[in-house]
C-alpha cells in the first residue's frame, strides 16, 4: 500500500501517550485503577466507572479479526481493494485498523483469525498500528 497520503491523526493531549507508544513500537491501552476496566480510545478517566485514576500500559499486540469490509472504490492513499477492519485486542477493546500481509480477499481474511500488531511509520510524528496474520499462533 502507498501510505504516504493517508489522512493522518493529529494527537490531542489525551491521546499523546498512544501515538508516542506507536512511535516506540508499543500499543498502549489504559486500565482503570479502581475497577480494572481496560478501554480504548484513550481518555484520562474510566468510561465504566468515571474514575480519574487510570494507568497506561503496553498491550500484547495480539488480536483477532472481529469484522471487516473490503473497499473496492479508489482512495487517494490506498490501492483498492483493501480491507478496513475492526480487530479485537487480546485485552478486550476493539479498534479500527487494516489487515496487511495477506491477500485482500474473503478467503484470506477469515473472521476470528489471530493477528499481530505491526507498526508502520508514516512520518517522524505518526506511526500507525496495523495488523497482520499471526500465522504461527492459533
Amino acid at each position: 500500500m502507498a501510505n504516504s497520503k493517508r489522512p493522518l491523526p493529529q494527537p490531542t493531549p489525551e491521546t499523546q501517550h498512544f501515538w508516542e507508544g506507536t512511535r516506540n513500537g508499543e500499543l498502549r491501552l489504559q486500565r482503570c485503577d479502581a475497577c480494572a476496566a481496560v478501554y480504548f480510545p484513550p481518555r484520562p478517566f474510566c468510561p465504566e466507572c468515571s474514575s480519574r485514576m487510570v494507568s497506561v500500559f503496553s498491550a500484547s499486540g495480539r488480536a483477532t479479526l472481529h469484522s471487516y469490509v473490503i473497499n473496492q472504490r479508489p482512495h487517494p492513499a490506498f490501492a483498492a481493494p483493501y480491507s478496513i477492519a475492526i480487530v479485537e485486542l487480546e485485552e478486550g477493546p476493539r479498534m479500527m485498523s487494516n489487515v496487511i500481509g495477506c491477500p485482500q480477499t474473503p478467503e484470506a481474511l477469515e473472521l476470528d483469525m489471530p493477528l499481530n500488531v505491526v507498526f508502520e511509520k508514516q512520518n517522524d510524528d505518526i506511526t500507525l498500528p496495523l495488523f497482520e496474520p499471526a500465522g504461527d499462533r492459533t
Binding site: P9, P11, I84, M96, L128
Partner: peptide
C-alpha cells in the same frame, strides 16, 4: 471529521470512505 477528533485519529487513517 477533523484529524484531531477521535474519529480522525482512530478511524480515518485506515481508509474508510
Amino acid at each position: 471529521m477533523g484529524a484531531s477528533t477521535l474519529t480522525g485519529q482512530f478511524e480515518t487513517p485506515y481508509g474508510p470512505m
